[in-house]
Nucleic acid binder design. Structure first.
Length: 486
RNA sequence: GUCCCCAUCGUCCAGAGGCCUAGGACGCGGCCCUUUCAAGGCUGAAACCCGGGUUCGAAUCCCGGUGGGGACGCCA
């Protein structure tokens, strides 16, 4: 039977790197096995959930290219995929569990519980619910009910051990004594995560739960619920957490923790996906660059490693550079053009010489790590006049005879035919030789004249791309600069 | 504190008893290429947490310690 997996975020924050990786693993698993990837929004915490967060999460998933087969906006046989739309169902299940004796009403005041907890914490330990309400006699219950006392519903945790075989961890067992009688339905009739999560996983016929390590200890509670509901639990796979470079758990406190921030910073979705897949998972061999389809083909739960992983911005950057370098010029142009427009480097609304733009981007390609790098490096090619960087002036324009050399170069270039790299190169080298200077000196001066910078693509490519006319103009501008400077 | 998980270069991974004088990648250093900066090629430094077992043999298995992490909510 094809697997059904889900990513079930709560919309209390943006889609961050950790959540994205969990979603990715689920997606890869579904795609690898021809299964179904379901997106379910766990918005039972009305205080902290928001519609903005929902759209932020959808946006992040879409950007990453993690398409869901069932869920918000696409629907499906188990709609709605928002828990806030399924409250009646959870209430019914909670009541059924009470009727069957697997759960009971709890009238304890939250204040009292909080005090107990604080006291225990002060004493250096943890507090477990003392089962006061599990022992209430029927008369007292009737009394409380008659008074309309608010009540929550708690799961009655049985004695004995609960355990499961995690698909990445192996066997995990805990003793029921370590699990308190947890709340499954709050007094405001909203379910807690444990209940809604299990009910939905059952209703939606989830076969494999792939989620963060932080849910391991919840799993025993969930198992108790599956048992009470008399349904076979899904298989579980708990994946390690991701930490920031500071070794702290990923959170909003880390700068670029939202995937959309990476989108804005000029990272490619494929690169981010590839990078994320390799955080805590390995194809088993030495491959590093695995495009989406390779990832799908290679993905296997057994390749997930045990320890937590530290996020490496440097490696992401490297990987992005790899993807940028491999990108076809047309695709690249489509992505960079809007950025160039935003930067005011392309004519307002005007047409663009596509071929020229692509030639330029190809030149810049091996030097780029992120999309904005193209904008920065394309700048000299798209403006009317360049500004000389102070260090470039200092380093390459100090020779007093330079104006004459540049003038000679300009004259030579005017006669070059055809205006292509090889002829341009021999023209420049010819001038250098004739004037008894190193070609390098002339090249550096030309680079400053044409780009204003210390670094650029190969100078002959630059000259040709900038064109005969503009090259002449810029060389002349340099001559003027050299002869008029103080 | 209790319970649970984890433990190989700075980082991410490979390694499923002999193939390991431990391999790859990022990052870092050097060299090459070269007009600069990248890219690329070559190359170097860099790790099996500690202690006991088991075994002819342990990075790999077991136990203990230490360290790190997670969970202990009417949050998810």
């Amino acid at each position: 039977m094809p697997p059904r997996v889900r990513f079930a975020p709560s919309p209390t924050g943006y889609l961050h790197i950790g959540g994205a990786r969990t979603a990715l693993f689920n997606w890869l698993y579904a795609r690898r096995h021809g299964g179904t990837f379901i997106l379910r929004i766990e918005d039972t915490d009305t205080e902290r959930s928001s519609g903005d967060m929902v759209s932020g999460i959808l946006e992040g998933l879409r950007w990453l290219g993690l398409d869901w087969d069932e869920g918000p906006e696409v629907g499906g046989p188990h709609a709605p995929y928002f828990q806030s739309g399924r409250l009646d169902r959870y209430r019914a299940v909670a009541n059924r569990l009470v009727e069957e004796g697997h759960a009971y009403f709890c009238y304890c005041s939250p204040e009292r519980l909080r005090r107990e907890r604080e006291r225990a914490e002060a004493a250096g330990g943890a507090w477990q619910y003392d089962r006061t309400c599990a022992r209430l006699d029927p008369a007292r219950i009737a009394e409380l009910e008659a008074a309309g006392a608010p009540r929550a519903i708690r799961c009655r945790v049985p004695d004995g051990r609960v355990g499961f075989t995690d698909r990445v961890r192996g066997r995990i067992d805990v003793d029921g004594s370590g699990i308190e009688d947890f709340v499954i339905l709050r007094s405001d009739l909203h379910p807690t995560y444990h209940l809604s999560n299990v009910v939905d996983d059952v209703d939606m016929a989830i076969t494999d739960v792939i989620r963060g390590d932080d849910h391991i200890s919840n799993t025993s509670k969930h198992l108790l619920l599956y048992a009470a509901l008399e349904v076979e639990p899904p298989a579980f796979a708990h994946v390690p957490l991701i930490f920031g470079p500071d070794r702290k758990r990923l959170s909003k406190r880390h700068g670029a923790t939202s995937v959309m921030e990476y989108a804005r910073a000029g990272y490619l979705p494929d690169a981010v996906v590839n990078f994320l897949a390799l955080l805590g998972w390995s194809p088993g061999d030495d491959r590093e660059i695995l495009p989406r389809h390779d990832l799908v083909a290679a993905f296997d739960l057994s390749g997930i490693s045990g320890g937590n992983a530290v996020f490496s911005p440097e490696k992401l950057e490297w990987m992005n550079g790899q993807y940028l370098a491999q990108m076809p010029a047309g695709d690249l142009a489509a992505r960079v053009e809007p950025l160039l427009r935003d930067a005011g480097l392309l004519p307002e609304g005007g047409p663009v010489d596509r071929a020229l733009l692509q030639r330029l981007l190809v030149l810049l390609q091996p030097r780029a790590k992120r999309l904005p790098d193209f904008v920065d490096q394309a700048q000299p090619f798209l403006v009317d006049a360049v500004e000389y960087a102070p260090e470039a002036v200092k380093k390459h324009l100090s020779s007093p005879e330079l104006a004459g050399h540049v003038s000679a170069l300009r004259a030579a270039l005017a006669a070059v035919e055809p205006f292509e790299e090889a002829p341009v190169e021999s023209a420049l080298r010819g001038v250098a030789e004739a004037r008894g200077i190193k070609a390098g000196a002339l090249i550096h001066a030309a680079r400053v004249a044409l780009t204003g910078r210390m670094a650029s693509p190969g100078i002959f490519e630059v000259i040709v791309l900038i064109g005969r006319a503009r090259t002449a103009t810029r060389l002349e501008q340099l001559e003027t600069y050299l002869t008029t400077r103080p």
